[in-house]
Design a protein around this nucleic acid. Structure first.
Lengths: 282, 282
DNA sequence: CAGATTTATGAAATAAAATTTCATTTTTTC
DNA sequence: GAAAAAATGAAATTTTATTTCATAAATCTG
């Protein structure tokens, strides 16, 4: 994808003159994107048609098209890929890597989500008699956050990060109740059991998990949040960030479905916190 | 910087014909980067010189230079800008907007962070006798998450999302203890008080908050997490995602500082969870 | 290793694209 | 509503890129 890498890879396949072009480009790509074909040819001490042939060999239409690809490759280095933290990274380096990996995960997760499933979930949530959010470990905080959000909507909502409470709650659930089960791996035994218990009791079970996991199979609706957890140093990192974004999406969907009067209410909830805060001077 | 935003911003400054050009470009920028000036002029039903003048008005040298800028702006997929959710958005639209806003916030937050402060924080954390994480509301889950992470490091760590517990804990703190106070607004009275109490008792206070807030003034080290909370429908959204990413950074810094033997330990912690999960078939 | 064949290269010609010039139209101002 | 200013496009010009083709270099063959 990145044209600079491609040039490096295909360096052997190039002829002598074409390689001269490649070297000039690799040496200062930022100059090249502002050069005409004539300027580049002169710089590399070869003729203009050679530059043109070089561009075609890299599967671009010609010189202007090549410059476009080059410009894109230079924009922000390589944008938002999962970069691995290295033992010797400086604070600045690992900070960037972690933030960028988080962004990459959000991008991935967004692609794995299906708008239909979100719509159905919002439908079900707005009509629920009771909403429960269940998660364990890192997903517990996602459930915790969901409670914090849905609580503002003045609907009966609970969250449990305790296996026994989750089981009891699942067993007591009934038609019209919605149980949201959150698990990145989708393989946590007790959570899969809880999902199936809730389902047996006619609750609607929404799973926030990775595609195709045991948990996914037990759910009425699956909201797929696929991320690559490569950067993780044995800790869940990107997965919960993507899950939180999904909670935001559900909460937003909920408020939109409820209409504008409802949102005025939310403002009141927020305003009620004002007295607990220091005034803003500006 | 981003030329698409720039076009949007300067839409009012443009003449009628130039605006036509702008609209065609905004509608399908990806087509435009492969069009000649003639093709674009035809598309917008105006003449070629108009396109040229349009390009110059955006401070580019001419059409080819403009295309270069456009290509670079498009290189990061869709640029992550804070897009507002609209009343009539479809599920697909608000999902995209929320994910993109989260990404935009991560980008912003990353820029507001100072590597030096992170380094100092990691120093302090690795040497702490006891670590406490305090947050309220949406920031409570960030504190919760931090506990979940640092707990794996086998260091004494607690988290409180209860005002009284926080106060008591702060009063009992002493030199060598680290108190991490998390608040997006940095104006929550009780948290600011807790920070100052902890400081009076010689604990090191790390604040995860916005630059220049009352809380920031009470802290030994401030980790600035600035995000624009525009998209929020009266709920904290992007801020906590950025804060969580920062927790990841601190946790990562911690493990790096502790060396490779320590990381083997983390692997053991993770492996200990295996029996609670269903096996992977692949 | 000579000769044949293929491949690589650049000069020149051509084509394409972008820019400038300038006359005409539209809009604004008083 | 006339004069001035700004906007616009047709045509000319210039710049840039591509194609053609002749020649040179490299590779192969017996």
């Amino acid at each position: 994808m990145n044209i600079l890498e491609k040039i490096t890879n295909e360096l052997d396949m190039l002829s002598k003159s074409e390689r001269k072009v490649a070297e000039v480009i690799l040496a200062s790509p930022n100059t090249v994107i502002h050069s005409s074909i004539a300027a580049l040819a002169k710089q590399a001490n070869i003729s203009e048609p050679t530059v043109n042939r070089f561009c075609r060999r890299l599967d671009t239409k010609g010189y202007p098209d090549f410059k476009l690809h080059l410009a894109q490759s230079l924009a922000n280095g390589t944008p938002y890929v999962n970069r691995h933290v290295d033992e010797n990274d400086t604070a600045d380096e690992y900070t960037s890597k972690i933030f960028e990996s988080s962004m990459a995960s959000l991008e991935l997760a967004r692609k794995s989500l299906d708008a239909n499933d979100i719509n159905r979930s919002v439908d079900v949530l707005t009509q629920a008699n009771k909403i429960s959010f269940f998660g364990l470990g890192a997903s517990a905080i996602v459930a915790h956050d969901a409670q914090n959000k849905f609580f503002r909507f003045n609907v009966p909502v609970v969250y449990f990060d305790d296996i026994l409470m989750q089981r009891m709650s699942a067993i007591n659930s009934r038609q019209g109740d919605v149980v949201v089960v959150i698990s990145h791996t989708g393989r946590t035994k007790s959570l899969v059991e809880v999902a199936s218990l809730a389902k047996e009791n006619d609750a609607t079970v929404i799973g926030i998990t990775t595609t195709g996991t045991p948990l996914a199979k037990e759910c009425s609706i699956v909201l797929s949040v696929d991320v690559s957890e490569d950067t993780d140093l044995y800790m869940p990192m990107s997965s919960r960030i993507a899950q939180l974004a999904l909670i935001d999406v559900l909460a937003t969907g909920f408020t939109l479905r409820r209409g504008s009067k409802f949102r005025d209410n939310l403002k009141k909830v927020k305003d009620s916190l004002r007295s607990s805060r220091f005034e803003r001077k500006d």
